[in-house]
Design a protein around this nucleic acid. Structure first.
Lengths: 125, 125
DNA sequence: TTGATAATGCAACAAAGTTGCGTTAAATTT
DNA sequence: AAATTTAACGCAACTTTGTTGCATTATCAA
C-alpha cells in the first residue's frame, strides 16, 4: 500500500473518481480543486493512487495526462491494455470495454500498450 | 499543397526524415538543429510537412510530440492507424508495419486511432 | 498525549510549445 | 534582371504543464 494516510485530499479525489464514469485530465482536476488544494498536491495524490492500483493513467491526444479508475479486474491483474476513447468535439475521455489483440512483434519485448481512439461520442455525433 | 516554398529549413528537415528509419521527437530535432534554425521554425515546418501529407505525428509515452515519414500508401490513402513502438530503455520510436483491427464501438464515430506499444527494442532487450 | 513522519502548501523553477511582429528571402511579375 | 509580393523566418516574450526543495501541518500509532 502506497497510500498510507487517508487525508482530506485523498478522500476528495477518491470520491471524484468513484462518482465519475469518464476519465479526467489532471488539468481539469487542478482547476476544479483550485480552492481546495494545491496543484502539487493533486499531482502527488494522483501518483499515489496510481501506485496503489486504484487509478491508471495515460496520455491524451493533446499530450495531457489523464487518469481513470481501474476496474476490479484491473486492480487485481494489473492488465491495463484496454483502449481509451477521446471525443474530438467535447473532449470527454472514456475507457472502452473491448479487448484489442496486440500481434507479436519480432525481435521486440512488449511491456505495455496505449490505445487511444478519437472521434465523436454519442452526444456529439 | 500547403508547403509552397522550398526553403532551406524545409529541405533540411525533409532530408533528415528521408534518411531516418525511426520516428523523431520535436525536442530532439530542436536540439539537433539549434545552430541552423530557430525552434519556432522547426515547429512550423513540421506542421506544414504534416498538413502536406509527408509526415504524421503522434504523442509518445512521455507526452512529447513525435513525427515520422508516411509511407506512400499512407500519403495517398490518409490512413495512419499503424502502431508505434517506443523502447523504454533507449527511447527510440519506430512505426510498426502491422495492422491492428479496431472493433466497432457502438454509438461512437471513430475518426482516428493512436497505438503506442512500449517495451524493449532489438538492441535493448 | 505525544512523537515520528507522511502529506501539504508555497514559491520558484524547468521544459514544451505558442504568439506577435519586424525582417528576410523565395517565387512571381514586369 | 530588377521590382514586387508575401510566405517563411528569427527573436523575444509568453503560456501551460509538470517538478523540486523546504518549512509547516496533520495523520496515525505507541
Amino acid at each position: 500500500m502506497s497510500v498510507v494516510r487517508k487525508t482530506k485530499s485523498v478522500n476528495t479525489l477518491t470520491t471524484i473518481f468513484n462518482e465519475s464514469t469518464s476519465a479526467l485530465s489532471v488539468v481539469n482536476l487542478v482547476n476544479r480543486l483550485k480552492s481546495q488544494m494545491n496543484k502539487t498536491t493533486v499531482y502527488r495524490v494522483l501518483e499515489r493512487l496510481e501506485n496503489d492500483g486504484m487509478l491508471h493513467s495515460f496520455i491524451g491526444v493533446d499530450g495531457l495526462k489523464w487518469y481513470a479508475k481501474c476496474t476490479e479486474d484491473e486492480e487485481t491483474h494489473q492488465n491495463h491494455t484496454h483502449p481509451h476513447f477521446q471525443c474530438n468535439d467535447c473532449g470527454k475521455v472514456e475507457c472502452l470495454d473491448v479487448t484489442i489483440t496486440i500481434p507479436a512483434i519480432k525481435n521486440k519485448q512488449i511491456e505495455s500498450a496505449n490505445f487511444l481512439i478519437t472521434g465523436q461520442c454519442e452526444n456529439c455525433k
